[in-house]
Simulated scan of single mutants.
Amino acid sequence: MTLITNTDALRVFCAPLHSEPFITVDTEFMREKTYWPQLCLVQIGGPDAAVAVDPLAEGMDLTPLYELLDNRNVTKVFHAARQDLEIFLHLSNRLPAPLFDTQIAAMVCGFGESVGYEHLVSKLANARLDKGSRFTDWAMRPLSDRQIKYAMADVTHLRVAYQKLRNQLECENRTQWIEEEMEVLRDPATYRPDPMQIYQRIKGKKGNGRFLAVLRELAAWREREAQYRDIPRNRVLRDEILVEIAHHTPETPKTLSRTRGLSEKAAHGLTGIAILDAVKRGLETPREQWPQLPARPDLPRGIGPTSDLLKVLLKKVSEDANVAGRLIASSAEVDLIAGLGENAIVPALGGWRREIFGKDALRLRAGELALAIRGNQLIIREISDQLAE
Rank of each mutant, 00 (worst) to 15 (best):
W36N: 02
K149C: 12
G112I: 04
L313P: 06
M1I: 05
L262D: 01
P291G: 14
I356V: 15
I198L: 08
Q292L: 08
A105H: 04
M140Q: 05
Y66C: 06
L68C: 09
I373H: 00
G209F: 04
F78S: 00
V115W: 01
K254M: 08
H79P: 07
L17G: 00
L310E: 01
R174V: 13
A81G: 01
T306R: 04
K131F: 15
H90M: 11
E284W: 14
A278V: 14
R174H: 12
K123D: 07
D84S: 02
E118M: 11
I273M: 09
M30P: 05
F111R: 01
L270M: 06
G350R: 09
L165D: 01
G282E: 06
Y191M: 06
E223P: 13
I275Y: 05
K33C: 11
C14D: 00
L340A: 15
N73K: 01
R296C: 09
E217Y: 03
Y199V: 01
L336M: 13
P250M: 05
E389M: 10
L369G: 00
L371Y: 01
R222T: 04
P195T: 01
G282W: 02
G209V: 02
R301M: 13
P300A: 04
A366C: 15
G341D: 09
R301S: 15
D298G: 06
P286W: 12
T5Q: 13
A81H: 06
H90E: 10
L62N: 09
A97Q: 09
R210W: 01
K206C: 11
I198K: 00
A361T: 10
N208P: 02
I23H: 07
C14W: 01
Y66D: 09
A153Y: 02
Q386I: 12
E368P: 03
F211R: 07
T27Q: 09
E319N: 14
V25W: 02
C109Y: 07
R146H: 14
W138D: 08
E355T: 15
